[in-house]
């Protein structure tokens, strides 16, 4: 289903969800939950957005039913730990590649994905200062390395 323009800010979280449907359904579920909450704040009133969000809610309810045996889904506190560990794992992979001077597209994507996953953590409450800093650094690094590679420069 096409994403209405008003909901464009959630497109990257939805894409991350899709990429994790098979790899890690818990990550996929919470990315969609974050997209749902943000989408409702952005525009839950116009017919095209409501239609999209109702479909997204259907999908979330179905996922929760299918994953009901998984404690990371049935208990949000466990889910919080799962998403935080995963976000840090992706961030640390990107950071280690960056520090080793291995600049490649997957490194940019890993930094960017980790920043999206730190966004997702906000469904569980306010982000810690450490996670806010990680998110800011990951977003900046992704943009910086992307620009360097685009301009044929070596990132510092």
């Amino acid at each position: 289903m096409a994403l209405p323009p008003q909901l464009k800010p959630i497109q990257h979280h939805l894409r991350t969800a899709q990429e994790h449907d098979k790899r890690d359904p818990v990550v996929a579920y919470y990315c969609r939950l974050h997209a749902m909450q943000t989408g409702m704040k952005l525009d839950g009133k116009t017919p095209e957005c409501r239609k999209f969000l109702v479909k997204l809610m259907d999908q979330l309810e179905m996922m929760k039913k299918e994953l009901s045996d998984n404690e990371s889904i049935s208990q949000e506190i466990v889910g919080n730990a799962h998403i935080e560990n995963y976000a840090l794992k992706v961030f640390l992979y990107a950071d280690s590649e960056d520090r080793s001077g291995n600049f490649h597209k997957n490194l940019i994507k890993s930094f960017y994905t980790s920043s999206l996953l730190f966004d997702v953590l906000s469904v569980f409450g306010e982000l810690s200062e450490e996670n806010i800093q990680h998110r800011k650094y990951a977003k900046w690094k992704a943009a910086y390395i992307h620009n360097c590679l685009k301009n044929g420069e070596t990132p510092q």
């Binding site: 939950l33 749902m36 909450q37 409702m40 839950g44 009133k45 116009t46 409501r50 969000l53 109702v54 809610m57 979330l60 309810e61 929760k64 949000e76």
Partner: peptide
């Protein structure tokens, strides 16, 4: 009809909010 449309939209928004709360075991 404008206010009817707005009421319908609000009711549907409430329904989504309720489903979200239920999904998160907040009801």
């Amino acid at each position: 009809t404008g206010s009817v449309g707005t009421s319908v939209a609000s009711a549907e928004q409430d329904e989504l909010s309720q489903r979200l709360a239920k999904l998160r075991d907040q009801v």
